[in-house]
Structures are given as structure tokens and as C-alpha cells.
Design a protein around this nucleic acid. Structure first.
Lengths: 165, 165
DNA sequence: TCGTAACGGTTGATTTTGCAACTATCAAGA
DNA sequence: TCTTGATAGTTGCAAAATCAACCGTTACGA
């Protein structure tokens, strides 16, 4: 059966699995506490951590598609956790900023995140954690700078479907 | 703003990002070549690699929800890439097996996967790869054995037999 | 040998996503 | 000024993921 391809060792497979295991557990926490979705938490975290930023910046930062960001922002706005501030020089963009309410929630969630991180760290042990972090750093560097953009077209027959324009 | 929580270093965040970057690029390949979805590729890979197995086993292995597996299997069956084999002792379960056609596609895809893995490895460098792998192993061990909790499945199973490696 | 609970798997409804097309704005030329 | 082409962000819609209920079957204790 197995020829020489080892599925269990295949990096995308392992990474996905790991990411799922790690983030689902945390997602369950903020979901239970605030009924918030993952994109919402991500946007909130970005804003809380970096302070005022635009939707596009949030997207770039958290690798979320702009529609996801748009909807997450709308949801947070509805909760009155953030407000939009227009740019005087460019009326297309809007700067986003957490309200006091939003900031409070952010702090609470950041605390939870830290706790969770500590939990993970102790589960992993110092050695495992360090290796994982280094490995991830290497990967990030490789993926982002190594090949420039993110259009996947290395080898393989393209059967381009949509696309023109 | 930032207090002491560092979003950019938050493990779930980094892992998700990494997993996305790595698997999306590969997903684009098999999608372009065979018009197949991620669950389909996963099911195919599991079957191709492990040989005959049941839908539940596939799910346990690839951490896919049973409905996802069910639909992926149906799709693969429609393509005539797999066949169902009934169990003589238990008429609820069905064993799944790739057809010759399915096996051929699996081999082709496994080849692509290997190529991709090689590409990743060279991007990462020997050191980075090794660290990432070790870190992932540590994480897997920690998450799976460290705390018995499993996914939020309505019908959870008693600790899947992860003969994994 | 019932009755009940659990299991393997499927289906339909609901929610979430991703893509494409759209609005509105800006910027640079001709 | 009038085009043409980007850019920021939103929205409609179709594909995909999730959830809950379901069917037929099996396991097991009373």
C-alpha cells in the first residue's frame, strides 16, 4: 500500500491537524464566553493589540480575506466594541478603533489567551515549545519571502478555470 | 495598547496561519488537476495510504467530521475511485477500498504531495524542517495524551485508536 | 426476548465561507 | 477636464462546513 509517501508525516496534514487541535480548544472558550466567531476574535485581537488600524491592515495581518474582515468588523460594530473613523484625506478608507467596551473585552480575552498559552507551554515543555516556535519561524520566513507572493503555481498542469480580467 | 500579550507570538494564531499557507498552496494543485475538494483528497489519501478502512476510521484519522467524510466518500464513489464493501458481521459498517482507477489517481497525487514536500523541505532547510517536525511531534503528543479531551462531537468515541506515528 | 442505549452512516436545514461583481473614491495622464 | 485604472470596502450568491435529527442495526442488561 504505502509505497514511499508517508501521509502521517506529510507536513500540510500535520500542520492542519495541529492547528485544529490547538485553536479549537481556545475557540471553544471565547465562543462560550462571548458568543464570538473566530474572525471576530481575530479582528478584535488585531485591533486590541495594534491599536487603530484599517480593515485592509487587519486582513493583511491576520491573513483573512477582506470579506471576512468586513463582516467581522460589522459584527463588532453592532456590539459596540469598535467604531469607525473616517479618514480626512481619503474617504475610501476607514480607521477602526476599539471602544472602551471593546477594549475591556479584548483585555479579558487576551488574559484568557495568555492563560491558554501558558497551559500549552507547560504541556509542551520548554524544549518542545522552543522547537515548534523556531520551526514556525523558519516556515513563515520560507513561505513569505521564499517565493514572494501567494499564488500557487509551481508545477502541475493548470486547468485554469475562472480568472480572466 | 499591547500590555504583555503578544498576538504575533500566539501559538494558535501562528499555527493557523502556517497551516493555511502551507496547505492552500497544495490544495490549489489538486483542485486544478482533479477538481477535488480538500475532504476528498484527505479521504483518498487515507485510503490510498492505509488501504481498506471504514468511514469512521477515516474520520478519526484525519480529524474530519463524519458528515464531511460521508460526503467525500460519496463523491469519490461517484467518480468510481472507491467501492463499498459490506461487513458480514456488522451490517452497519462498510469497508471502503480504492478501485484501480482511484489507486491510480492516488499515486499521481501522492507523487505531487512528495514533490511539494520536497519543495517545502528545500525552502525550510534541513534545520528548520527538523525543528518544525520535532515541535509538531511534541505538540501532538501533548495534545492527544496530555489531556484526554477530544473534539466537540455529539457522539464522541472512546479515544480513537491512533496507531499513528 | 424484550427494551433501551449506542453505533455507523446519511440527509436536510442552517450558518459560514469565498468568489465575483459592485459602489465609491482617488490618482495620473492626455 | 475627461478618461482609465487602481484601491477600500460591501454585498449577492453559490459552494462548503456544521448541526441536528434521522434510519437501520447491534449490544446488552433486566
Amino acid at each position: 500500500m504505502s509505497e514511499d509517501f508517508d501521509l502521517g508525516a506529510f507536513l500540510p496534514y500535520r500542520l492542519n491537524r495541529a492547528a485544529e487541535l490547538v485553536s479549537l480548544r481556545f475557540a471553544a472558550q471565547y465562543r462560550a464566553r462571548y458568543q464570538m466567531t473566530r474572525p471576530e476574535w481575530r479582528a478584535l485581537a488585531a485591533l486590541g493589540f495594534h491599536g487603530r488600524m484599517t480593515a485592509t491592515e487587519i486582513g493583511a495581518h491576520s491573513t483573512m480575506h477582506k470579506t471576512k474582515v468586513s463582516r467581522a468588523v460589522k459584527a463588532l460594530e453592532t456590539r459596540r466594541w469598535l467604531r469607525r473613523i473616517e479618514d480626512r484625506n481619503d474617504r475610501r478608507t476607514e480607521h477602526l478603533e476599539l471602544t472602551a467596551l471593546g477594549l475591556r473585552s479584548y483585555r479579558d480575552l487576551a488574559k484568557m489567551a495568555q492563560d491558554y498559552e501558558g497551559e500549552l507551554a507547560s504541556l509542551l515543555g520548554a524544549g518542545g515549545l522552543k522547537q515548534l516556535e523556531r520551526g514556525l519561524t523558519a516556515l513563515e520566513d520560507a513561505m513569505l519571502s521564499g517565493t514572494g507572493d501567494r499564488q500557487p503555481n509551481s508545477q502541475s498542469k493548470p486547468v485554469a478555470k475562472h480568472g480572466e480580467r
